[in-house]
Design a protein around this nucleic acid. Structure first.
Length: 199
DNA sequence: AGGAAGATCTACT
DNA sequence: GTAGATCTTCCTA
């Protein structure tokens, strides 16, 4: 995939429920322009966080300083910290409906050597198979919280893959690492892909 | 002011 | 498989 082939995913793609956007994102590309180089990964694992009544979602206790990006328009980035790490979400639907999709794992496609350098590891399998690892590999920090992921100037955006993923190739399970609302089947991943974070 | 919690990851046995 | 590092925000007093 070269940069002249990138067809950016527009806002309307994200103006649906988190579950729908989560499934649609599987197989498409996450692109990061970093020091004039494109770092590209194929999205292989995501989780949906619901706009209402989802105890695990960061919107559950209302709008706060840390989660204000969730209350922006669809296609906005929500970057938040967890311990030492950052995690990247894309906001779905509209500002009245603060759901989002967490990007949990990507398969490195381009810029792998830079990703290795950013991560400080030398193994492909360990490069981007987790939400904190993605942000490290792609050098995504708090400065990206609230930016628009539907324009190339933001340096982070999504682009369509030529190959489509069929419904049967997407598995769903419970979400990972949460302590509340654990029963909901809102994690989606590409079947048999070696870069998912957990079996 | 202090402490707990959290959508994690690494290093060790 | 388990423990511990680590950091920002929020809650309670």
């Amino acid at each position: 995939m070269r940069k002249e082939n990138q067809i950016i995913i527009p806002r309307i793609f994200f103006e649906e429920s988190p579950e729908k956007v989560a499934k649609k994102l599987i197989g498409n590309f996450l692109v990061r322009e970093f020091e004039n180089i494109y770092l590209i990964g194929r999205i292989v694992e995501v989780e949906a966080y619901l706009p209402f009544n989802d105890e695990a979602a960061h919107n559950y206790k209302g709008k706060k300083k840390m989660n204000k990006s969730l209350f922006c328009q669809a296609g906005t980035a929500y970057v938040h910290s967890l311990r030492k790490y950052k995690l990247l979400d894309v906001v779905t639907e509209d500002p009245m409906s603060p759901g989002s999709v967490l990007i949990r794992a990507i398969e490195p496609i381009e810029g792998k050597e830079i990703m290795k350098k950013n991560r400080g590891v030398d193994s492909f399998e360990n490069l981007t198979n987790g939400p904190g690892k993605i942000c490290q590999a792609l050098n995504i920090n708090k400065d990206f919280d609230g930016i628009d992921l539907t324009v190339k100037e933001s340096k982070i955006f999504f682009s369509y893959s030529e190959s489509t993923v069929s419904e049967e190739d997407i598995c769903s399970t419970q979400r990972v690492g949460i302590t509340k609302a654990t029963h909901l089947p809102l994690r989606f991943y590409l079947k048999n892909n070696p870069f998912i974070s957990k079996k």
